[in-house]
């Protein structure tokens, strides 16, 4: 079966002389049809640049992109007909009503009047916007604009949907509506390519993720396989009735602990071996006369994997080497 996306040696250099740092550096990957594919990376890693090249908005410096078997360099037209794009900022026409926004997009994709009417009603009802169909989008909340923006991107039932940061800044209800929609689209056979900072969202939604760092693909696999690869970022999470001064420093001195992170009223101790750490930790609580409220061992999260791969220290955004450190 044809790949939904096939990328070969894709490179982007914004510098006109070609001497600047590469925003995207010879990346290669494929996305299968029907997959939800997450594209993760820190700010400036090359996520949006890659997505803009895949959606024809940006011309690559080098490399080849095949969308549903169509080479974008030869003729982007057949590929464009089959893709939908939801950019990070909801790009609806605020001067138009929700209905007019959908009609405009439907016309742009050459849908018949009947088809776009039926589809627009279906989408507006599904997205909870039917009652507001004749209201100008300028009166919509951020979440409503986001939903309308997605509706506009899928009115023509694209085979491949690009989503750039689909949920940040939205209330929980809007975010869940959008996540449910992404799953539904995937179950109907739509391929979804999403760039996101929301690592837990990618963990829950994506069949596979790619992590891009400094313009290169650093890892690409299913979330669970990636987590298995990074067992050294396992952790023990513990909370006490009291947290006396200097507790962080003391926890950091325990054997087997690589990093200490305070999360709310809990302490997360990163270790390569939770079983080896636990006896030391119990002994420590007895010596310090601390009462334990809860104690859990945690497998690496996708966020831990992400931080390891992108070279960022757990609990920070700096690029210091991973060493025994209190955060």
């Amino acid at each position: 079966m044809t790949h939904a996306i096939e990328v070969h040696d894709l490179t982007k250099n914004y510098s006109s002389s070609g001497s600047g740092e590469l925003a995207v550096d010879q990346i290669n990957f494929t996305v299968e049809q029907g997959e939800i594919f997450g594209f993760l990376g820190p700010n400036g890693a090359g996520k949006s640049t890659t997505q803009r090249m895949l959606t024809t908005l940006l011309t690559p410096t080098e490399g080849q992109i095949l969308i549903l078997g169509h080479d974008l360099a030869d003729d982007a037209y057949p590929a464009k007909r089959q893709i939908g794009l939801v950019p990070e900022e909801s790009n609806v026409y605020t001067e138009l009503t929700a209905w007019d926004n959908l009609m405009f997009t439907g016309r742009l994709y050459r849908m018949s009047k009947t088809d776009r009417g039926i589809r627009a009603e279906e989408l507006l009802r599904d997205f909870g916007l039917w009652e507001k169909k004749d209201v100008k989008a300028e009166e919509f909340s951020k979440g409503m604009k986001r939903r309308l923006s997605i509706a506009m991107a899928i009115i023509h039932k694209p085979a491949l949907l690009f989503l750039d940061e689909p949920t940040p800044g939205l209330d929980v209800q809007s975010a869940r509506t959008i996540q449910k929609l992404i799953r539904q689209l995937s179950s109907e056979g739509t391929t979804v390519f999403m760039t996101t900072h929301q690592i837990e969202e990618a963990n829950q939604l994506c069949d596979r993720v790619a992590i891009i760092s400094h313009g290169k693909i650093a890892a690409i696999d299913t979330p669970e396989k990636l987590k298995q690869t990074f067992q050294q970022v396992q952790s023990v999470e513990i909370s006490f009735t009291l947290s006396p001064n200097g507790l962080e420093e003391k926890l950091a001195t325990l054997p087997e602990v690589s990093t200490v992170l305070k999360i709310g009223d809990k302490w997360r101790l990163y270790t390569e071996s939770p079983p080896a750490l636990l006896p030391h930790l119990i002994k420590f609580t007895e010596i310090e006369n601390l009462d334990i409220v809860s104690l859990n061992t945690l497998a690496p999260s996708l966020e831990d994997v992400f931080l390891q791969i992108t070279g960022q220290q757990i609990g920070s955004v700096s690029e210091e080497p991973s060493s025994k450190k209190r955060v």
Binding site: T55, T56, L57, Y77, K80, R81, I83, L85, P87, E89, S90, N91, V92, Y93, T105, L108, Y109, R110, M152
Partner: peptide
């Protein structure tokens, strides 16, 4: 500036 031009550039037209 509003991002709506991307919608047009990505649409299936020359």
């Amino acid at each position: 500036r509003l991002g709506t031009y991307d919608r047009l550039l990505a649409a299936p037209m020359s």
